[in-house]
Design a protein around this nucleic acid. Structure first.
Lengths: 192, 192
DNA sequence: TGATTTAACTAATATGATTAGTTATTATAC
DNA sequence: GTATAATAACTAATCATATTAGTTAAATCA
């Protein structure tokens, strides 16, 4: 059924991922990707629906890798320890895979069902941990949004060089997370 | 000295700002901008150094507008009230001016001295407010990074449609800020 | 062995950024 | 007033990328 069984979707995405991490998300062009795969760029249309299609596939791949990293970090941990582990893993992933991290939120349409479903797994991961705090429903979702905002904001600012450089960034991260956790505990106590 | 005194840098940036807010940051191309100004795109090179130059100018303009909005929100307020006002103004600005907000962090080089200086004014605005908490030096800087991460992360996720839609976003914002503030107070108390 | 499938190809078009070199308008000098 | 200098805007051309249409050819399967 398949002629010239050379390149498959997995190779396309894998190679795109390499370009993304090595040269940046914007460097993932059909032109550069085809060159690296030793084919001509129109041939890529046999694998993905143009540049938007490629970015969607790269987003799905990246979100998957990201989820794996975060969920592994949470194994065997609970409560604050689990949150700190996930937050740390989150930032480390963004540092190690800047292109993949950017791809996770630069899909052509984040409302796309497949993309959304992939991203929801990460939300559920955090929700699961928050259950131990007695948080659920909308109260838990608000807190998840807080964590996501903090983590994404920190990773994003760091990646763009938006944070100055004369101050230890890991310390900032630790302080940020523990401050938010302290506030969370304080709110939970006073709600009793 | 000037022939055909038609278009000046201010008009160029103003028009670019309109495109950015109406059609998105990516829609600010030299081609679209020139069309809207009724000139040919190479003529823009008399005003800005290509697309990177335009983006830098747009970043400087946007950061200036952003700073004005935030500083006005802080007038006559202090402590938690000032932080909440700034955080709210931050998110409202990003909602009202999605293109300008994106431009603030999509300059070709955020390390550029002019861009950095403009951005530093916003950091100093928050630092000033934190003085009332007895925070200064690196401790204050870590907390500023926390606020910036939260605000930027929230605005960024919201803009990209990364937050789901079945939950009130303003409430999430209020909870996030007050949780962090509660944690900040708790840390400051236990440090005594 | 022959038909079918389809990956990869070539050719062509469109859009956008950019450079080089030209034109022409305006302000200033005389 | 007229000449000159400065420069905004222009045309022409090139390059890169994305994309479409139509062709070629290799591998599978009947």
């Amino acid at each position: 059924m398949s002629p010239r069984t050379g390149i498959d979707l997995q190779m396309v995405i894998q190679t795109a991922a390499e370009i993304a991490d090595q040269e940046g998300f914007e460097a993932v062009t059909l032109s550069a990707l085809a060159y690296k795969l030793n084919i001509k760029s129109p041939s890529l249309y046999n694998h993905v629906k143009g540049l938007p299609g490629l970015r969607k596939q790269l987003a799905l791949y990246s979100i998957g890798e990201f989820y794996n990293t975060l969920s592994e970090a949470a194994i065997g941990r609970s409560n604050d320890e689990a949150i700190i582990a996930i937050g740390t893993a989150y930032i480390h992933f963004a540092r190690k895979h800047p292109g993949l991290y950017e791809a996770t939120f630069r899909a052509p349409d984040l409302m796309d069902p497949e993309v959304r479903t992939a991203g929801d797994r990460i939300i559920h991961l955090i929700l699961k941990i928050l259950q131990a705090y007695g948080l659920e429903g909308s109260a838990a979702l608000h807190i998840v949004r807080g964590f996501r905002s903090m983590f994404h904001g920190f990773a994003s600012l760091e990646q763009k060089g938006g944070l100055g450089m004369n101050l230890n960034r890991d310390e900032s991260l630790n302080i940020m997370i523990s401050t938010f956790l302290a506030g969370l505990h304080s709110r939970l106590n006073s709600a009793k």
